[in-house]
């Protein structure tokens, strides 16, 4: 689904990513771990061009989205992203946060369809704006129910706890029906007590077959849910394996050292 070929990224003179090759297939849960400064987050942010890659290709559903000529917004609809600091829209209520992009995208598609209908003989059926909104609301409520926050639909994000915010952020990205969701250290900014509830939602997502790329420090999660673990060090992938072999039989010296420190 995502095919990363020789991905490079530098900030000024600092080379952060030095040639990354990885194939992410449908249904994969790829967990990326590594010491800080190894380029994990940058790698993840390059996958949806939040950072423009300096060089290389990212083939997503057959299109190279690293090409600056590609309309990235269309493809980002199919790539969800969950941030360390949630990044919920502060000026919107919880349900508006979830509905905003589905409604706006559906509206812009609607405009295109209407324009097309003007000039073609075969008229496509066009939903009314009211229908679009009702559908989005229904979908958003269903998603909120799924994470047990339907009673919080009409409050502002500032009234939620960190764990609740992150769960809302996850369903906000889900509302677009993405093919893959990228998680950028989703539990690092949370109180220890709230980590569990967020991981629970992610586990459930993984079970439902969602393709996920997760940058995290939660080794337990990686072991239990990951289908593949990737170790990054100094801008390259140094080891990539299934969880059992990755943790049970690490090959790379730096990885051995890293694991001995984090798995005490």
């Amino acid at each position: 689904m995502i095919d990363v070929i020789n991905l490079r990224k530098s900030f000024g003179k600092v080379d952060v990513l030095k040639g990354i090759d990885i194939k992410i297939n449908k249904g994969d849960v790829v967990v990326v771990i590594g010491p800080s400064g190894s380029g994990k987050s940058t790698f993840l942010r390059c996958l949806n061009c939040m950072e423009d890659p300096t060089d290389g290709n990212i083939i997503f559903n057959g299109v190279d989205i690293a090409d600056p000529k590609v309309d990235i917004n269309i493809h980002r609809r199919r790539i969800g992203m969950v941030f360390q600091h949630f990044n919920l829209f502060n000026n919107k209520t919880v349900i508006e946060n979830i509905m905003l992009s589905p409604v706006l995208c559906a509206k812009s598609d609607r405009r295109k369809a209407v324009r097309k209908n003007l000039f073609s003989k075969e008229k496509q059926p066009v939903k009314s704006v009211k229908e679009i909104k009702a559908e989005a609301r229904e979908n958003a409520m269903a998603l909120l129910k799924r994470i047990g926050l339907e009673d919080k639909a009409d409050v502002y994000p500032s009234t939620l706890s960190g764990g609740q915010k992150q769960r809302v952020a996850i369903v906000r990205s889900l509302a677009m029906n993405p093919d893959v969701i990228l998680f950028d250290e989703p539990t690092s900014a949370l109180d220890p007590e709230m980590v569990g509830e967020v991981l629970e939602v992610m586990k459930e997502l993984a079970k439902s077959g969602m393709t996920m790329v997760v940058v995290t420090h939660e080794m337990g999660f990686a072991k239990e849910v990951g289908s593949r673990i990737v170790f990054m060090d100094e801008g390259v992938i140094t080891e990539e394996n299934n969880p059992a072999d990755f943790f049970g039989n690490p090959q790379n010296a730096r990885l051995k050292e890293f694991l001995s420190k984090v798995l005490m």
Binding site: M50, N73, R77, M81, F83, H85, N87, L100, S101
Partner: peptide, 27 residues
């Protein structure tokens, strides 16, 4: 306004100008 607000908007497929208009400028 925190840059995360812009990133949040862009990550769900909104364009720069839409995110600016709907999220950043109101705040």
């Amino acid at each position: 306004v925190d840059y995360g607000q812009m990133e949040g908007g862009r990550s769900v497929g909104l364009s720069f100008s839409t995110t600016m208009l709907k999220i950043v400028i109101p705040q």
